[in-house]
Structure formats: structure tokens, C-alpha cells
Design a protein around this nucleic acid. Structure first.
Length: 867
RNA sequence: GCGGACAUGGCGGAACCGGUAGACGCAACGGACUUAAAAUCCGUUUCCCGUAAGGGAGUGAGGGUUCGAGUCCCUCUGUCCGCACCA
């Protein structure tokens, strides 16, 4: 009797209710149990979850359910990265208060997430815009302030002169504000910084200890921190225009060995010397203004065409009687080193491009092995490799390293040079001139300076309006006018809010005691931290992860925790992508608006659903609202259920890679769910009854099935543990195929113990897919006669004896080419293998009577006959 | 510009430490069941030659190390990602 079709949406609702009543996902500290903290990067509450979120959280959920079954005390919480720009945009565009907008979004997304059957401890939910949360963040800020980890300095921002607002880099499009279209200016503002550079060395060194992080992320962080050893050099300056008090130019270089190849010096447009010169030189002023229109990102600065302005000043070479021009150049970053360089065009690509443009001398001084110093020429590509120094007076013949050292020694002796370790890493600017963020708890007093607010929290006022440009906090009198906590005089409250990266730099610690009246409770963080498995997008590989690592160190300094590394294990998952569709006018179409007409895969064509107009099928891209290639999880689960989505997300594509969302793939997952349900149903009726006694002996079919089941269990366990979900899925498919075949076999011929083996492997099968398709698993578990929850079962044990076969198939090669194979006892000796291999027809044919030179035998693997 | 990653059938991908390349899924094709369709079940499917047995080629391109290379080394090509105020 065939089973009824499995009604996923209906049954899933039922089981979610059962789980909730049983509180399967509540976590409580328990010193007696080993803990396991699994966390997915919390989402920004944009309003709807998308399938990309689903993939992220399902992976974490599989781990959480698996580790729970393995006997761990699992913490698996969820929260909201709820401050940020989009809420303010919504306020401006739709006249809805950021708070209202955000909390409505959170409510919508929470209910969507609950529909996926994630085993999350919702009692720990937090949103970073909850006063309960950001009040504690302000405490942390004040503690860091008191420890000297916070300071203020001037820094550049993108300024929109029409909207009177600071723009994010992504809001600057071709040098103009995205909303106003006004040409963006760069402005200097006083901003708050966190001293991440204080920990630069440790952040770098400790990367080596993060052995459960992807190598590429560690490498990206290493490069980001960018430690380099070099030399600070003082060049005497001369020239009529030389401003007073600026008689020397300090540059930082990592290549002092190339000093004899220098042909110019260049300073940043923001260098104090440039600013001073510009006061009298209107052309220079114009050039600097031009540079400021470029944008603040490193990418733009470095990619722009190299341009310079000759200041007329000269620097003297430290070892020669030669003078070189000083340029203001658009590719010199004020934030790195001293904002000034000496240019050696032959051995630096940027310098070379610049030199070619301004017809400056290019003199090679590092000669690669095998090249003649007299004829060596760099052409259009600078030579940055190793070699011998030439054309360099006392440095001639030295290696690059020796020359660096020699130059440093000589200049240090003269007091014109100093060795220095420089970092590319800069201190973290956290000031944002925006409303929807955590207020920086500082009060500015004319007498006392910047003083931390005495009473915390500093709450965001809610009576604000966005009908005027700029930050509404600036024009909120009650908020800004306060008494100085130190002297009691009139003072002004800081109106900048914090970068939202601050919010996400410690939320994982807050989850350990989400409602505490201190930032973190020590016994809780000591028990739960570090996060054992952190899962999220690779786009956070640098900033979020580095800031969080910094925060743990800073919080250790302030005594809140005692731990440097927040994430013991890190996994970066790929995106969910989908084809894109456009009509004749180039307008983006959503998948629902498109109908396919082609006959097969090679002839895929599409037309619009409404009028049959032709549709261009575009490349699969990251799902985005603007390209309309998103899939709505709600719509989807209402029809196929959450398990289908979960299974599909885990199948096929390796989790670190992008996964292509396709209708066929969804159908495949859906079919498999139905198939599993039928198989379990049949096993329940044809297999041995619940609790039947294990037979003494098994026939060949039963034995084979049991081997398949235990092999699959072994593979699934290892694959889940290594987050290789796609191969775990393959192992389950494989077992389902063999299980189906065994069921068929049982109908045609009885085999000793097969009914018992069917029950055993059926139960194992259900337990194996339970972390991935938990709803279906409960339904199957009940069908198998159980009144317990599979979610509460311990993970089954593999019977190791069943993993080992007594016979193995060994490939036999002749001269490295596979010619035949050998089925032979597992512990056959080398001599046995040699003898058996030589007897094979395929081997004899391939040898063609030639003499055998050598036979390579790797037991249980391969025989290679060399003839 | 700088930095990083990736490349295997028609498609997504598998292959532990260098040891039978293509597991598993999708698509396609053939068959069974059905009045029919859907669903389901069985089979085939890297390419070329061959009815077959069998042989040849094959993991982006070129070279190298090795008895043996998808895997290690060098060179090249292509694609994707990040670059400090998006989160």
C-alpha cells in the first residue's frame, strides 16, 4: 500500500510546535557538559530574509543539531545588526521613523526565520538598536576611553554640499552624491578613533594560532595589517617658497637600497607641506582641490592616472651632490607612512608611471641575476625582484638586504634616518555623522575638553525629523545642550554616532548573557567563548573579523573578558546566485514574470508571462533587489516546505562556493523528500518491528545493506563535522538508492536478517538526515513507531567492523596506465599481488612480451608494472 | 593600481597523504506501468574509433618532477572577490 504524499507545509508546522513546547534549543550554562557555540553572522534587518540568509543559517543549524546529538551543550543564538544607513534612507524616502521601520522589519524577518525550523535559542535574541544593548556598548566605550584606547583626530570624509551630509564610499558615484548629484567634496572633521594599531603586532602574530580559519582569510588579514620594516629618512629641503619651520621632509621607505636610483620626492595632497605651499600658490591649491574630488577610497586613488604638481622645492640627496624636485602627487596616501616618499622609478611601478609621465630619470640600481648593469633597462615594467646593487657608489655589489642595512646604518649615524616598523593598518575611525546609530557618550566642554557622559545610557531621542538635510541630532536642542559632568558648566553633547561595525564587534559575547546589566557576565563568557564555529560571508573576511578580534583584546584590557580570539573556527560560505532576465527594453524581470519555451538545455529561451515578449536570459548573479532575481523564501516554503529549501541549499555545491538556485534543483530536492518518505514507510511495514531482537546471523543481502548504512553513517558524520554538506548529501542519496534496492530485493527473495537490517538502516538513514531535514525526520521517526523526538536522540554509533571489507579491488597499471583490475583479499602480501597482477589478461596484453623492469606495489591501492 | 581566490562531462560537483578521474545530483535519451498524462520504477550517458571484444584521448593552456599528477613545482590565460563611511 503506497503511502500518501508527504504534506510538508502542514507537517512542518506541527513539528515546529512540538519542538517549541519541548524547548529543544534552549541553552543553559552547565559546567558538567562540554559546550559548543555555533553562530552565524547576524543579519541586517532589511525587511525580508532572502535565500542567501537561509543558506547561512541552515549550515549553522545542521552543525547545532549534529553537535547536540553528539552530546554537547550547544549555544545557537540569533540577533539583529539593526543600526545603519538603510533605516535613515527609509525615513527620508518614506517618512517612516527609523525605529519603526527597523522593528517592523525585525518582526517580519523573525517570523520568516521561524518558518525554516532553525533550532535557535530565541530567548537570547537581541537587536543592536535596543537601548538594552547599546547602553552596554557605551559602557565599553567609556571604559576604553579611560584606558586610553580612544582618541580624537581630524580625518577626511566625503561631503555632499547639497544634502549637508557625509556620504559613504558607496554613496559616491563618479564623484557625485547618489541622491543630490552634487559634486562631492572632501572635508576634514574631528572624529573618534579606536587604537586598533596598539594591537597590530598581536593581531598579526595570533593569526598563526587560528588553525580552524581558512588560510585565505588569514592571508587577507595579514596583508591588511601590512607590517613592513623600513626607514624614516630626513631630506633637507630648499627653495624660495619653502614655508617656515619645514626645512626637512620626512619620508618612509621600505627600499632604502634604491636610494641611488631616486629621481624625485612626492608628497600627498594632504601633507602639511602641501597645505602650507598652497596658501601662496593658487595653481597648487587648484591641483589639490582637484585631487579632493577624487574620492577617499584607496582603490580610486591608486587607480587614477598618476598626476603631480611640481612645487619648485628641491631635496638634496643624502649621499650625492644632486638635487631632486618635490612633487605633490595624487597617488600618495597621507594615511600611510609619513605621506611622503622618495621615488625610485626603476623599482616601483607607481613611481615608474609617474616618472614616464613627467619625463624624470629612470636609473636601475638593482640588477637581476644574469643581467649586465650597463645594459639593463626596465622598459615599462619596474623591476621589484632580488638582485645585486649597481650604479650606487658604496652600495655596489651588495644584495638588496645588505644594501638596506648599510643605508640605514649610515643615516642613523648621521641622525637623518631611523628604522621603523610601519603598518598599513590604521586606527579605526568610528564617528558617523548620522542619527541611527549608537550615540557616542561624550560631552564637549570648553573648559574640560571631551568628557565621558556621567549618566548612561545616552538614549537616542525619538522626536526627530528627516525633512531637513543633515543629522537630526545636530538640531535637537534637548539632546545637544547639557551640563558638563565635570565642571557643571554649559557644554555640548557629541552628536556623532558609532560605526555599526562597533555593534557587531562584541554581539557574540553579549549572547552569553543577553539581558545582563553589565556588558558581559564573566562566568558566562568564560564558559561559552570562544565561538567554536562561526559562519558567514567572505565579504567580512577583513573588517568585521579584525574589529572583533581587536574588541576581544580591548575588552581584555578593560577587564571585561579574558580572551584574545573570539572565533576558534571560521567558515566563509558562498552566495546564492540566480539567472537574470531582461525584456527588450532592458528592464529587469523577476523569475515569476518569465516563461521558458526552449526544447532542451541547449535551446533555452524565454518569453514574458503576460504578453509573450522575448526575454534575454542573463548570467547568474548574486541575488539582488535591483536585478529582481531574488527568490522569496516564504512563497517557496508555503508550497514545498522548509526542508526542501534546506536540502537544496546543502546539496551539490560545496558550501564555500556560490550555489546556483534553479527550479530543477528545487524539484529534485522535493522529489527526494517524497522518496524518502515512501522508503521509510515501506521499511516500517516490511522491516522488523520496533525493538526486535538482533539476529545472530545475517545473509549476504542483509550484510551488504548494513555495510552500506554504516559506511554512509561514517561518511555523513565526518562530512558534517568538516562542513562538507554536499558530500554528506551525496552519501545519503547513495544509501537511499541502496536501501531502495534492498527493499525491492526483499520482495523477490528472503535473506536471513534482512528485515532487521532494513529497520536498522532505515532508522540510521532518518537520523543521518535529521540535522538537515529535521521536520521530515520527525515524521519518519514517528512512522517507524517511536513516540520520542529524533531531535533528542543521541547520534548513532558506527559499527567499525562493518567499514572494513575483506576483499578489495585494486587497479593494475602497466607503465602508469590502468590495464586491468584485481579483486583480492585485503591483506594479500606484496608477493601475492605481484603474482596475481602478472596473470591478468589485460596486463599480459599490455606488456606484449617485453621484459619487466620493476613492479611497484602499494598494498590495498595499486600495482604498477613497469615494462 | 594593490591584494586574494578559483578553473574537472551538457550542468552543479566528487576524488582521504601523489595511486582505478567523473561518486552523488540535475538535464537528456531509451524502456516499464497507464486509455492518457502526471507521479513512480528500470536502464544508458566524458569524447573519438569499433557491432563487439578492445583501443586512443582526456581535469583552462604550455612545460617540469615521479613508476604514477586533477592533486606537487614553474610560466601563461580566463573568471570572480576585497580595498577602511554598505552591512
Amino acid at each position: 500500500m503506497a503511502a500518501e504524499r508527504y504534506n510538508a507545509p502542514d507537517r512542518e508546522k506541527h513539528w515546529r510546535k512540538v519542538w517549541e513546547d519541548a524547548q529543544i534549543d534552549r541553552s543553559q550554562m552547565d559546567e558538567a557538559l562540554p559546550k559548543y557555540y555555533v553562530l552565524e553572522m547576524f543579519p541586517y534587518p532589511s525587511g525580508r530574509i532572502h535565500v542567501g540568509h537561509v543558506r547561512n543559517y541552515v549550515m549553522g543549524d545542521v552543525i547545532a543539531r549534529y553537535m547536540r546529538a553528539r552530546g554537547y551543550n550547544v549555544l545557537h543564538p540569533m540577533g539583529w545588526d539593526a543600526f545603519g544607513l538603510p533605516a535613515e534612507n527609509a525615513a527620508i524616502e518614506r517618512k517612516v521613523h527609523p525605529k519603526t521601520w527597523t522593528y517592523e522589519n525585525i518582526a517580519a524577518m523573525r517570523s520568516q526565520l521561524k518558518g525554516i525550523g532553525l533550532s535557535l535559542d530565541w530567548s537570547r535574541e537581541l537587536a543592536t538598536c535596543d537601548p538594552e544593548y547599546y547602553a552596554q556598548q557605551q559602557r565599553l566605550f567609556v571604559d576604553m576611553f579611560k584606558r586610553g584606547l580612544v582618541y580624537r583626530k581630524k580625518s577626511k570624509v566625503n561631503w555632499d554640499p547639497v544634502d549637508h551630509t557625509v556620504l559613504a564610499n558607496e554613496q559616491v558615484i563618479d564623484g557625485r552624491g547618489w541622491r543630490s548629484g552634487a559634486v562631492v567634496e572632501q572635508r576634514e572633521l574631528s572624529q573618534w578613533f579606536l587604537k586598533i594599531t596598539e594591537y597590530a603586532d598581536d593581531l598579526l602574530a595570533a593569526l598563526d594560532t587560528l588553525d580552524r580559519w581558512p588560510d585565505k582569510v588569514r592571508l587577507m588579514q595579514r596583508n591588511w595589517i601590512g607590517r613592513s620594516e623600513g626607514l624614516l629618512m630626513q631630506f633637507p629641503l630648499e627653495g624660495d617658497a619653502l614655508p617656515e619651520g619645514q626645512e626637512t621632509l620626512e619620508v618612509f621607505t621600505t627600499r632604502p637600497d634604491t636610494i641611488f636610483g631616486m629621481s624625485f620626492c612626492a608628497i600627498s595632497p594632504d601633507h602639511p607641506l602641501a597645505t602650507a605651499l598652497a596658501k601662496k600658490d593658487t595653481k597648487l591649491k587648484a591641483f589639490i582641490d582637484e585631487c579632493h574630488r577624487m574620492g577617499t577610497s584607496t582603490e580610486e586613488i591608486e587607480r587614477a592616472e598618476k598626476q603631480g604638481y611640481d612645487t619648485g622645492l628641491k631635496v638634496a640627496h643624502p649621499f650625492r651632490k644632486a638635487k631632486f624636485p618635490v612633487y605633490v602627487a595624487n597617488f600618495i596616501l597621507m594615511d600611510y607612512g609619513t605621506g611622503a616618499i622618495f621615488g625610485c622609478p626603476a623599482h616601483d611601478q607607481r613611481d615608474l608611471d609617474f616618472a614616464r609621465k613627467y619625463k624624470l630619470k629612470v636609473k636601475p640600481v638593482v640588477i637581476p641575476e644574469g643581467e649586465d648593469p650597463k645594459s639593463f633597462d626596465v622598459g615599462s615594467e619596474a623591476y621589484t625582484g632580488p638582485g645585486r646593487i649597481a650604479n650606487s657608489s658604496f652600495l655596489d655589489g651588495l644584495s638588496v638586504e645588505e644594501a638596506k642595512d648599510e643605508v640605514a646604518k649610515r643615516l642613523e649615524k648621521r641622525g637623518e634616518g631611523k628604522r621603523k616598523v610601519n603598518y598599513r593598518l590604521r586606527d579605526w575611525g568610528i564617528s558617523r555623522q548620522r542619527y541611527w546609530g549608537c550615540p557616542i557618550p561624550i560631552i564637549h566642554c570648553e573648559k574640560c575638553g571631551a568628557v565621558p557622559a556621567a549618566t548612561l545610557p545616552v538614549l537616542l531621542p525619538e522626536d526627530v525629523s528627516f525633512d531637513k538635510p543633515g543629522n537630526p541630532l545636530d538640531r535637537h536642542p534637548d539632546f545637544t545642550h547639557v551640563a558638563c559632568p565635570s565642571c557643571g558648566g554649559d557644554a555640548r553633547r557629541e552628536t556623532d554616532t558609532m560605526d555599526t561595525f562597533v555593534d557587531s564587534s562584541w554581539y557574540f559575547a553579549r549572547f552569553c548573557s543577553p539581558h545582563a546589566t553589565v556588558p558581559v557576565e564573566r562566568d558566562m563568557v568564560d564558559y561559552w567563548l570562544p565561538v567554536d564555529q562561526y559562519i558567514g560571508g567572505v565579504e567580512h573576511a577583513i573588517l568585521h573579523l579584525l574589529y572583533s578580534r581587536f574588541f576581544m583584546r580591548a575588552m581584555s584590557t578593560t577587564g571585561h573578558v579574558d580572551l584574545a580570539e573570539p572565533f576558534a573556527g571560521l567558515f566563509t560560505q558562498g552566495m546564492v546566485i540566480h539567472e537574470t532576465y531582461r525584456d527588450e527594453d532592458g528592464k529587469w524581470l523577476s523569475p515569476d514574470e518569465v516563461r521558458f519555451t526552449g526544447n532542451d538545455a541547449s535551446d533555452r529561451r524565454a518569453v514574458t508571462v503576460d504578453g509573450g515578449r522575448p526575454v534575454t536570459i542573463g548570467a547568474a548573479e548574486k541575488m539582488s533587489k535591483s536585478k529582481r532575481n531574488t527568490v522569496d523564501p516564504d512563497h517557496f516554503t508555503a508550497h514545498f516546505g522548509a526542508d526542501t529549501a534546506r536540502w537544496f541549499m546543502l546539496s551539490d555545491s560545496p558550501p564555500e562556493r556560490d550555489v546556483l538556485w534553479t527550479e530543477e534543483g528545487v524539484q529534485g530536492a522535493w522529489r527526494f523528500i517524497q522518496r524518502l518518505w515512501r522508503l521509510v514507510d515501506e521499511a516500517a511495514s516490511q522491516g522488523a518491528p520496533l525493538g526486535a531482537k538482533r539476529p545472530e546471523k545475517f545473509g549476504p543481502a542483509a550484510d551488504e545493506l548494513r555495510r552500506a548504512a554504516h559506511r554512509a553513517l561514517d561518511a555523513v558524520s565526518r562530512n558534517i563535522q568538516n562542513l562538507r554538506f554536499n558530500t554528506a548529501v551525496a552519501a545519503i542519496y547513495d544509501l537511499a538508492n541502496k536501501f531502495g534496492a534492498a527493499l525491492q530485493g526483499q520482495k523477490s527473495a528472503a535473506d536471513e536478517g534482512l528485515d532487521w537490517a532494513l529497520r536498522e538502516s532505515g532508522e540510521l538513514l532518518v537520523q543521518m538526515f535529521a540535522p538537515m531535514m529535521p521536520h521530515l525526520a520527525e515524521e519518519c521517526w514517528a512512522r517507524l513507531g517511536y513516540h520520542s523526538l529524533v531531535a533528542k536522540q543521541p547520534w548513532p554509533e558506527v559499527e567499525k567492523a562493518l567499514l572494513v571489507d575483506d576483499k578489495v579491488t585494486i587497479a593494475v597499471q602497466v607503465n602508469g596506465k590502468r590495464r586491468d583490475e584485481l579483486l583480492i583479499s585485503r591483506d594479500a602480501s606484496t608477493a601475492d599481488l605481484e603474482a596475481a597482477a602478472l596473470k591478468l589478461d589485460g596486463v599480459q596484453r599490455a606488456i606484449e612480451g617485453r621484459a619487466i623492469k620493476k613492479i611497484i606495489v602499494v598494498p590495498q591501492r595499486i600495482v604498477n608494472v613497469v615494462a
